[in-house]
């Protein structure tokens, strides 16, 4: 195991934010921590990064304790909700700063990988929010970290951009063989990006496993379907028939943020449409939930 957390406990004034967290993340895994606000997931990330101290327990990387190691010696980088770029530096200088050799060529290559070629000399304020987040991501990668921490980095993006950046980050992290820990309150995001998911609740690990395994055991984690070997959580589907309550319907196409993903026909699996309202209407978008125990 690369990252091992054992009995990590953190108390803020009169509140136990983390109450003995045990977690093991193997090398090269994208792991998601999912939980509602206040469940302790961001605090845990900050403890791993060395930005926060814990009251008890241990954090180790390949059996070497990280406790007391300053953040800059941990080879861990962090991507936050906001891009957090240094405003007095250009886009490229922000990335060069993080490269081990202070190399402009290296920084330009990283910018190209996040689809921002030729923007080295641009000022930060010239970039959109999504572009700034991509620069921030390239800076995090340019530091050649062994672990990258993602603290809800997609929260402030519009859906289209969010989806694009989720895929970009997932693909690059996998390609580089990095270990990544994603914090999110969005189960859909966790399932799309992560290999394994841990559910945090009130400072404790409630469950941990692959998205598929969790969907079987955790009723609140459901809301996804498998299509062509891939998971598509909380898919928005277009209903072209006029179904009635609890009726199995023929779903003609799946769309996610406007992108057509594939076709589903009766016989490929057993799903029902769960009504949100009293009645369905043609052409509207509904959520798809796997039916417990089959139809």
């Amino acid at each position: 195991m690369s990252l091992v957390l054992s009995g990590v406990h953190k108390r803020f004034k009169d509140r136990d934010v983390l109450r003995g967290i045990d977690l093991e993340i193997p090398n090269g895994e994208i792991h998601a921590l999912v939980g509602v606000s206040g469940s302790g997931k961001s605090t845990l990330l900050r403890i791993i990064a060395g930005l926060e101290t814990h009251d008890s327990g241990t954090v180790t990387w390949e059996e070497t304790p990280l406790d007391g190691v300053p953040p800059h010696l941990r080879r861990i980088t962090m991507l936050s909700q906001s891009p957090l770029l240094f405003p007095h530096l250009t886009v490229g200088e922000n990335v060069t700063l993080a490269t081990p050799n202070r190399s402009r060529q290296e920084a330009e290559a990283w910018l190209a990988r996040v689809r921002l070629p030729g923007r080295y000399d641009a000022e930060i304020h010239e970039l959109s929010g999504g572009e700034q987040q991509r620069v921030s991501f390239s800076r995090a990668l340019a530091a050649s970290p062994r672990l990258i921490l993602l603290d809800e980095p997609f929260t402030n993006l519009d859906p289209e951009l969010k989806y694009e950046l989720q895929r970009l980050i997932r693909d690059l992290v996998r390609e580089l063989g990095l270990t990544a820990l994603l914090v999110t309150h969005d189960r859909e995001e966790a399932m799309l990006v992560a290999d394994r998911v841990t559910l945090l609740e009130a400072g404790l690990v409630r469950a941990s496993g692959t998205p598929q395994a969790l969907s079987e055991t955790e009723s609140t984690f459901g809301d996804f379907i498998e299509l062509g070997g891939s998971l598509y959580p909380s898919l928005h589907i277009e209903v072209t028939d006029s179904p009635t309550d609890e009726t199995v319907v023929l779903i003609r196409s799946f769309t996610r943020f406007g992108h057509r993903l594939g076709e589903y026909r009766r016989g490929q699996g057993d799903y029902v449409i769960l009504p949100r309202d009293e009645s369905f209407r043609d052409g509207e978008t509904y959520y798809l939930r796997k039916r417990q125990g089959g139809i």
Partner: peptide, 15 residues
Amino acid sequence: RTLLEQTLMLAPWTR
């Protein structure tokens, strides 16, 4: 604070 915290990931001289 969050931007200043980012500098903690950099070596002291760079920071």
